[in-house]
């Protein structure tokens, strides 16, 4: 059974004159990594907010359709209860530091405090989580003293520790340099290896191709494609996305007539090696 189900979901923000989501229907299987791509303003963040319950519990507006998390209707479930089912990580690492805590350990424990988890249990979970996110050596530092990449891993850890089966990551590397991006992407792979269901919004399609087993494309609020990454990313231009450098190289080769035209373009280094060796 799918762990997340979206049925005919439409949403219009208060103060907006058109729908940010239009009749979106999709499902997510447990333990999978799904990427959501789309141009700016396509509605990716809005879909994430709906999946995590921030719509309707945080954002006001006109909502139609349903979202079910593990069979429970998000509109009927309080947010504080939903967050143990669906965790969400945002773009800006700085904004996700609660500010109320002086050390990284305390910051990681913040969610558990709010959930009223007993101290002993908190200690084991914090130790385990810091280890997993490679933050144990900065455990006693101030969260504000960390690098961007470390802060974003801290944000991931702070959500992970609440043990939601689903984690929604909305452009978690948008504010990071390549080094920080690599750190965070590696962490996301670890999460997936731990069986978490992951929904990742990401502009850098190289990473989408490497991490995701499935890609959804949003365009002006509508779900316009849903399927296997390579097939979908090969049509990236059609939705105004920036294709991977491998696809770009392949397209250039095809346009110059070096290689005959093909539908499926390479999206990862492995695929590119394959594609160019066999065809060229």
């Amino acid at each position: 059974m799918s762990i997340l189900r979206v049925e005919q979901l439409s949403f219009q923000y208060l103060q907006a004159n058109r729908n940010a989501l239009r009749a979106v229907t999709c499902e997510f299987e447990p333990g999978t990594v799904t990427a959501i791509v789309g141009a700016n303003g396509a509605g990716k963040s809005t879909l994430c907010f709906a999946l995590a319950g921030f719509i309707p519990h945080f954002f006001r507006g006109k909502l139609q359709g349903k979202v079910y998390v593990n069979g429970a209707d998000t509109q009927q479930t309080p947010l504080a209860q939903l967050v143990t089912q669906v965790g969400m990580v945002f773009q800006n690492p700085f904004n996700q530091i609660s500010g109320a805590k002086l050390t990284v350990s305390e910051e990681v424990a913040f969610g558990l405090e709010n959930l009223g988890i007993a101290r002993a249990e908190m200690e084991t979970r914090v130790a385990r989580t810091l280890q997993l996110f490679d933050l144990q050596h900065v455990a006693q530092q101030s969260p504000f003293a960390l690098s961007g990449g470390q802060q974003q891993r801290l944000a991931l850890a702070s959500i992970f520790i609440m043990e939601p089966p689903v984690m929604i990551l909305d452009e978690p590397t948008a504010q990071l340099d390549p080094h920080g991006t690599r750190q965070v992407m590696k962490t996301i792979q670890t999460l997936a290896a731990h069986g978490r269901t992951i929904v990742l919004v990401e502009h850098k399609l190289e990473w989408v191709a490497r991490l995701a087993a499935r890609v959804l494309v949003l365009d002006k609020g509508a779900l316009v494609a849903d399927g296997e990454p390579r097939a979908i990313l090969s049509r990236a231009n059609a939705w105004g996305l920036i294709e991977t450098r491998y696809a770009r190289a392949a397209r250039a080769a095809m346009e110059r007539g070096l290689i005959e035209k093909k539908e499926l373009l390479p999206q990862t280094l492995e695929q590119a090696k394959d594609w160019f060796q066999i065809e060229g």
Partner: peptide, 23 residues
């Protein structure tokens, strides 16, 4: 930044009704 700060707090059950524990 305020909106994202608020979302991040809610994402960590800041407003949960049950009694909190302390680290």
């Amino acid at each position: 930044n305020v909106q994202e700060r608020a979302l991040a707090l809610d994402a960590r059950a800041f407003r949960a009704a049950r009694p909190k524990t302390s680290w």
